[in-house]
């Protein structure tokens, strides 16, 4: 991330009349200004996260006993096929929703990055409309459009001779459906981030490349992509963290068995599995163990992605 630190700083020039009390206030002012965030993050972010690790060691009933069981929850978890299914669903949905989204955003940003493009504001604003639409509303409308019997999509596919696809019942179908919803909601936002970075690339670099005989595609690969590196890293890392914690889409896509996302848990993600065990079965300890596993997965994949994406370099 390219932040420019302010190099020159205001030199406090306390006037001789400043009282001692005021100077103490002045000295703690910066800490007071940043304190709200740290307080909120500590109470609702850090402490719960650490507490998750603690609760995971107990058989913890919200209105009953807390019995220390050591690593039993984890032993049980690793032998639980539902956990491995959910882990696979999570990774599959995340890949299906992230990779196409980022590529699509890259392409669209490239198209939008044109000095003489008309209606540029209209295009940009339209692409932000899905972002302001709620996940709940998105899920309801996409479920209907992708319905097996009465959905618009299957009706259109019917003209091409395709048999109706039961998106919600099959594993890959439900993953695709959820990925489409996630992609729809986020690709415009990502496009704008990429576009902003593209516009910051000095024109002279492209001109020099053109003089050297580099065409549009070469310019895109050798100038645009490497210049976008910071924002690509940012979007990859944030979509890893967000995409692996998907919850609302799978919960709402299957109205009949919301907590499992269908009869055979075909699209139950880890967060939904956590919710099912914690708030559906009231097994806080087991739910927390799922949380710990998810934490490891998120941090692991985010780190791998960070390392991989920072290696984007101009090719020589």
């Amino acid at each position: 991330m390219t932040t420019t630190l302010s190099t020159r700083r205001a030199q406090a020039a306390p006037a001789g009349t400043t009282s001692v009390r005021q100077s103490i206030t002045e000295r703690i002012a910066p800490y007071a200004y940043i304190a709200p965030f740290f307080l909120i993050f500590a109470v609702f972010g850090l402490v719960p996260l650490l507490f998750t690790f603690y609760v995971a060691l107990f058989d913890w009933n919200p209105i009953g006993e807390h019995v220390f069981v050591g690593l039993d929850n984890f032993t049980r978890l690793f032998a639980d096929t539902r956990f491995w299914d959910a882990a696979w669903n999570t990774i599959s949905i995340w890949l299906l929703s992230t990779v196409p989204q980022l590529l699509l955003a890259l392409g669209l940003a490239h198209l939008l990055n044109h000095a003489r493009l008309r209606m540029a504001v209209f295009f940009r604003m339209s692409m932000l409309v899905p972002y302001i639409t709620s996940v709940a509303a998105t899920t309801i409308v996409f479920s209907q459009m992708f319905d097996r019997d009465y959905g618009l999509l299957n009706w259109l596919l019917g003209f091409a001779g395709v048999e109706p696809i039961d998106f919600k019942q099959s594993v890959w179908g439900s993953h695709v459906l959820i990925a489409v919803m996630v992609t729809w909601r986020w690709f415009g936002y990502t496009t704008l981030l990429y576009l902003a970075s593209l516009q910051a690339i000095p024109r002279a670099i492209y001109e020099a490349a053109a003089v050297d005989g580099a065409g549009g595609w070469k310019q895109f690969r050798h100038i645009s992509i490497p210049s976008l590196r910071p924002v690509i890293v940012f979007t990859i890392v944030t979509s890893t963290i967000g995409g692996l914690q998907i919850f609302t889409e799978p919960l709402l896509v299957s109205r009949l068995s919301p907590l499992t996302c269908g009869p055979v848990r075909q699209c139950q993600t880890l967060t939904l599995f956590l919710y099912e065990q914690g708030f559906g079965q009231f097994q806080f300890g087991y739910g927390a163990a799922i949380g710990v596993a998810l934490f490891v997965l998120v941090v692991g994949l985010a780190t791998v992605n960070y390392v991989l994406s920072t290696r984007i370099r101009p090719e020589r």
Binding site: D166, Q169, S170, V171, S257, T260, P263, V264
Partner: peptide, 16 residues
């Protein structure tokens, strides 16, 4: 009951 029902539904929907 739910698990048994799910298994039947899974066969019925052509997946199981």
């Amino acid at each position: 009951g739910q698990e048994l029902l799910n298994a039947i539904t899974n066969v019925e929907q052509g997946k199981g």
